Simulated scan of single mutants.
Amino acid sequence: MSFVDEVYSLYRDQLNDDEDDAVAIVLSILEEQSREHVLKLIEQMSDDEVVQMMGVYLVEMLKMKMIQDGKIPPFRAVPSSSHIH
């Protein structure tokens, strides 16, 4: 079972129709993890999962930069980069 499957199984009932629920859960989980543990999780991912993860990360970081530069309007509060890094 992948880490995503485990997280979904644990929090399925807390996830509603608002993506903010997922963001809150993920940020909470990540705050509890060490760098070493996160790297172990990444090592267990398939090549496709790693590329997909990097793709999502890059898109979100580019959107944050574009919001900061006023190129696109902020539609909702963007998580602070300190929580993402």
Score class of each variant (00 low, 15 high):
residue 53 M to S: 06
residue 63 K to H: 07
residue 52 Q to F: 15
residue 8 Y to R: 10
residue 63 K to C: 07
residue 40 K to Q: 09
residue 69 D to E: 14
residue 69 D to V: 05
residue 4 V to A: 11
residue 24 A to L: 07
residue 22 A to E: 11
residue 30 L to N: 04
residue 1 M to K: 10
residue 58 L to I: 15
residue 33 Q to F: 02
residue 11 Y to C: 03
residue 83 H to F: 15
residue 18 D to L: 03
residue 43 E to G: 01
residue 71 K to R: 13
residue 12 R to M: 10
residue 70 G to C: 02
residue 6 E to K: 15
residue 68 Q to N: 06
residue 57 Y to K: 15
residue 34 S to M: 01
residue 36 E to Y: 06
residue 2 S to A: 07
residue 15 L to G: 03
residue 23 V to Y: 05
residue 57 Y to Q: 13
residue 2 S to G: 04
residue 2 S to K: 05
residue 9 S to L: 10
residue 29 I to M: 04
residue 56 V to T: 15
residue 26 V to Q: 00
residue 74 P to V: 13
residue 72 I to E: 05
residue 38 V to S: 00
residue 50 V to E: 14
residue 3 F to I: 06
residue 20 D to H: 09
residue 77 A to V: 12
residue 25 I to Y: 04
residue 53 M to K: 00
residue 79 P to V: 09
residue 10 L to R: 13
residue 80 S to L: 05
residue 66 M to A: 15
residue 5 D to A: 08
residue 15 L to N: 02
residue 30 L to C: 08
residue 32 E to C: 07
residue 9 S to H: 09
residue 27 L to C: 03
residue 59 V to Y: 13
residue 72 I to P: 01
residue 5 D to H: 01
residue 38 V to A: 09
residue 52 Q to S: 13
residue 50 V to N: 05
residue 78 V to Q: 14
residue 50 V to K: 09
residue 34 S to P: 02
residue 43 E to A: 06
residue 10 L to H: 10
residue 43 E to N: 05
residue 55 G to K: 07
residue 39 L to P: 04
residue 85 H to G: 12
residue 80 S to K: 06
residue 78 V to W: 07
residue 3 F to D: 09
residue 37 H to R: 11
residue 27 L to Y: 00
residue 44 Q to K: 09
residue 58 L to G: 09
residue 31 E to D: 04
residue 40 K to D: 14
residue 11 Y to A: 04
residue 46 S to Q: 00
residue 43 E to T: 00
residue 69 D to K: 14
residue 19 E to P: 06
residue 67 I to F: 00
residue 67 I to C: 03
residue 11 Y to T: 05
residue 21 D to H: 08
residue 28 S to A: 15
residue 22 A to Y: 02
residue 17 D to F: 14
residue 50 V to G: 02
residue 37 H to N: 08
residue 41 L to N: 01
residue 41 L to A: 03
residue 67 I to W: 02
residue 10 L to P: 02
residue 71 K to E: 13
residue 11 Y to N: 07
residue 67 I to R: 00
residue 42 I to M: 07
residue 16 N to V: 03
residue 6 E to I: 15
residue 57 Y to H: 10
residue 30 L to H: 04
residue 76 R to F: 07
residue 62 L to N: 15
residue 58 L to K: 14
residue 43 E to P: 00
residue 7 V to H: 04
residue 34 S to L: 03
residue 54 M to I: 08
residue 64 M to F: 06
residue 14 Q to D: 06
residue 19 E to Y: 10
residue 3 F to C: 02
residue 68 Q to A: 11
residue 80 S to Q: 02
residue 64 M to N: 11
residue 83 H to N: 12
residue 5 D to P: 00
residue 15 L to R: 01
residue 74 P to F: 06
residue 77 A to F: 06
residue 43 E to R: 00
residue 73 P to N: 14
residue 82 S to P: 02
residue 10 L to M: 13
residue 23 V to R: 14
residue 63 K to T: 08
residue 46 S to H: 02
residue 73 P to A: 15
residue 78 V to Y: 14
residue 78 V to R: 08
residue 84 I to G: 01
residue 34 S to N: 01
residue 66 M to N: 14
residue 67 I to E: 04
residue 5 D to N: 13
residue 46 S to K: 02
residue 67 I to Y: 01
residue 21 D to Q: 04
residue 13 D to N: 14
